[in-house]
Amino acid sequence: MTESLLELVTGALVLAGAFFFLAGTAGLLRFPDVYCRLHALTKADNLGLGLISLGLALQAPDWTTRIQILLIWLLALAAAATVCHLLARSSLREGVPAVGVDTEVDP
């Protein structure tokens, strides 16, 4: 009884996570510039990964595995924040145009 309830919760969490990955990919394809696309990937995908990790942690056989999953999620978060900042900074430096922002000083 408890086990099937737990499976249900895992299923819901994993599905919700998959939905956010779908949304992230939609943003990656539909958003107008590299800066907005970075938002889509960092936010939606990290929430998706968090939900999937939580769902899987419920099914994990032992606590070592659960902490392992938590560590992997935290590491992925730190990695995503770093990659996001690096790509945004180098895009700005290279002058990749941003939508809605006038990157030139007005005459």
């Binding site: 949304a23 800066y35 907005c36 929430l47 922002v101």
Partner: peptide, 24 residues
């Protein structure tokens, strides 16, 4: 905040009109 950030960006990405007003 992570949940709200994810929901926010998911809404904008899937919305037909793609409501964005980006700036620095």
């Amino acid at each position: 905040q992570s949940v709200r950030g994810g929901l926010d960006v998911a809404f904008r990405a899937l919305h037909p009109a793609r409501p964005l007003d980006p700036t620095f």
